[in-house]
Amino acid sequence: MNRLLHLDRTLDELDPPRWAEPAADATHLVRTVHTLRRVPLRELTPADLRTLLTQQVALPFVLPPAVRLLLEEPLLDAYFHEGDLLLATVTVPETAWHPLPDLADELAAAVAALPRAAFADLPRSAPDDLGRFVARYGSPS
Results as ranks from 00 to 15, higher is better:
Met1Trp: 15
Met1Val: 13
Leu5Gln: 10
Leu7Trp: 08
Asp8Tyr: 06
Thr10Met: 10
Asp12Gln: 06
Leu14Thr: 03
Leu14Asn: 03
Asp15Ala: 13
Ala23Pro: 08
Asp25Thr: 12
Ala26His: 10
Ala26Glu: 08
Ala26Gln: 05
His34Ala: 15
His34Lys: 05
Leu41Gln: 10
Arg42Ser: 11
Arg42Val: 11
Ala47His: 03
Leu49Ile: 12
Leu49Lys: 01
Arg50Ala: 14
Thr51Arg: 01
Thr54Gln: 15
Gln56Pro: 03
Leu59Tyr: 03
Pro64His: 04
Ala66Ser: 15
Ala66Thr: 13
Ala66Met: 09
Val67Lys: 03
Arg68Thr: 09
Arg68Cys: 12
Glu73Lys: 08
Leu75His: 06
Asp77Thr: 13
Ala78Asn: 04
Tyr79Glu: 13
Asp84Ser: 12
Leu85Thr: 00
Leu86Asp: 00
Leu87Asp: 00
Leu87Trp: 01
Ala88Lys: 01
Thr89Phe: 00
Thr89His: 00
Thr89Gly: 01
Thr91Val: 01
Thr95Lys: 04
Ala96Phe: 06
Ala96Met: 07
His98Tyr: 11
Pro99Ala: 09
Asp102His: 07
Leu103Gly: 07
Leu103Asp: 04
Ala104Thr: 00
Ala108Glu: 03
Val111Gly: 00
Pro115Met: 15
Arg116Val: 12
Arg116Thr: 15
Ala120Gly: 12
Arg124Val: 15
Ser125Leu: 14
Pro127Ser: 08
Arg132Ser: 10
Val134Gln: 02
Ser139Arg: 15
Pro140His: 10
